[in-house]
Write a protein that binds this DNA or RNA. Sequence first.
DNA 1: ACACATGGTAAAGATTTGGTAAAGATATTG
DNA 2: CAATATCTTTACCAAATCTTTACCATGTGT
Lengths: 236, 236
Amino acid sequence: MPNKYTILIVEDEKNICTFLSALLETNGYRAIVAHSCREGKMLYSSYTPDLVVLDLGLPDMDGAELLKSIRENELTPVLVLSARGEEGEKVRLLDMGANDYITKPFGPAELLARVRSALRAHRHAAEEGHFPGGVFCLDDLTIDYDARRVFIAEREVKFTQTEYNILALLSEHAGKMMTYSAIIKAIWHEPTGDTSIKKLQVNMANIRKKFGTPIGTKGYIVNELGVGYRMRSDME
Amino acid sequence: MPNKYTILIVEDEKNICTFLSALLETNGYRAIVAHSCREGKMLYSSYTPDLVVLDLGLPDMDGAELLKSIRENELTPVLVLSARGEEGEKVRLLDMGANDYITKPFGPAELLARVRSALRAHRHAAEEGHFPGGVFCLDDLTIDYDARRVFIAEREVKFTQTEYNILALLSEHAGKMMTYSAIIKAIWHEPTGDTSIKKLQVNMANIRKKFGTPIGTKGYIVNELGVGYRMRSDME
DNA sequence: ACACATGGTAAAGATTTGGTAAAGATATTG
DNA sequence: CAATATCTTTACCAAATCTTTACCATGTGT
């Protein structure tokens, strides 16, 4: 029924290209391949893909520029492929609006999972700018944005203002990795520094404490070392 | 005694039916159950419920048809229950005017939160600031908007103009957190500042004093530090 | 395995915030 | 105009919270 999702791959290494496009094609996506950022830019505007897989460290132009030109109009999800040693670049692109990243080397299952997750989260966000009914749900966690109330397994849990703000922010972007600087800017409107990251970590600890950390269950919020936090999405 | 909200459940699976009706009944709603769309249509016109929980994929008739027949006259909120994989159908029903959807499997907290949210939104949209019959009820508190009179446990209590305005405002948005700035703008038509928040706080103190703060009972109005006030709702 | 960096957590101190009473200021009423 | 009610401002206290600090656990690279 719905047309295939079109995925634009921007990657210079030939064998990764064929691997990716074969993988995506056999899983029901339409794959378009660009071997440089310039080409990616052109193909993007002619195909308007549903998702972009962007490799860092392409020779001809900065991946950031491509991302910026995509973000000027659309909010098409962008997955960043990064090799080791490109940590800084990775975080920079996440800050600029990339939705997720995958560190090389990666397996087919991981890539497909991230692609699915990004597509679904994006479709949800697009359908009605926000969560229908103003309610967010993830496993036992329920957030009622209008009432500004949070429930965990039927029982209301009180969060302080900053704790709630963090929760609301992460849940509104569920499934998307949010960098420290993005979170700090949104919550405290101040530049990121050592102390502000500490504040964030303390708040996260308090939030987790109130969640009660059900043993055996993976927490609602995941941390990625050196990058930021992500709230799990109920459809990943 | 405040009238219970009546909720019509249209669902064929027996165990989901009993789960839903038990859940809703224990939370202060009146639940009516229909096991088919035909039955739902009939029960709808005889009970005129305040909200409908509609399962997709009923055998006898398309849920869409029931939704359409509801939407012909009323704008009663409709929550759609959908299983995974019925994404397309779900979107279609949202387009046709369903207010929210819940994906199976779902927990009790999620259902209750979405029911509350839908009732709240609908109530607020329907009356231009007034309740059916021009009366608001919450536990011992009764507000007669037409007469501009307030009763607590059968006995009238005199409120000043601003006190009444605040009460009316909060009760009209019962269940929703109202920020300081929203309240101040509505009451004094002036920008929010330190002094205006103080005014509001003093008024709240006076209101609470007149309520008599029955010990052991949670107050009618809840404060969220740094955010605003929320009047409890009879459906929470 | 080691050193190093990063994140988690608890607890103390500093700060902000809300509640309340009471004193002016303003408006309303007879 | 006086008497009264209401509104606004001020001051102070208690409690909630934010921030900082220190220390421990965990992960990362060599």
